[in-house]
């Protein structure tokens, strides 16, 4: 691979990390650390409010996962691990986005789906980013 590609991909990963940091920061600003305020944030939101958050995230997260996971196939042919990782990342992203609509006053326990899926999404994204970095060497 040409060195300039490597440079571009490295900067892409740095900016992706910044995107995650600002995303978590925003979530904590709106919902804070406690489970109650985190649940209330979603319960109190109207359908329109949820749509305003979900729509741009669905678009951008889909694009970002595509770009990130396609870097995994740059140096060698796809292995079943990469296919599974991509599929899991996409599924978890969809669960994380759409679970917001299921959290109501009566189903507050569903906040756990949101928390676990978001956490898993971040974890798997970081794993993919480290795998991409390893392949750049």
């Amino acid at each position: 691979m040409i060195n300039l590609y490597r440079i571009g991909i490295r900067y892409f990963l740095i900016m992706l990390l910044m995107l995650f940091v600002t995303g978590i920061w925003l979530l904590l600003l709106h919902a804070s650390f406690s489970l109650e305020s985190f649940t209330n944030y979603y319960v109190e939101k109207s359908i329109l409010g949820l749509l305003e958050v979900t729509t741009p995230h669905l678009f951008s997260m889909g694009i970002v996962i595509f770009i990130l996971t396609h870097f995994l196939s740059l140096n060698k042919k796809n292995s079943p691990f990469e296919s599974k990782l991509t599929l899991t990342l996409f599924s978890i992203m969809l669960i994380s986005n759409f679970s917001s609509f299921l959290i109501t006053q009566e189903t507050t326990y569903l906040i756990w789906i949101k928390i676990i899926s978001t956490f898993l999404f971040l974890l798997l994204s970081l794993l993919s980013m480290s795998l991409v970095l390893l392949r750049l060497k």
């Binding site: 900016m15 992706l16 995107l19 600002t22 925003l26």
Partner: peptide
Amino acid sequence: VHADILSAMI
């Protein structure tokens, strides 16, 4: 900033 990072990155 969050939105700008995404657009600049892509």
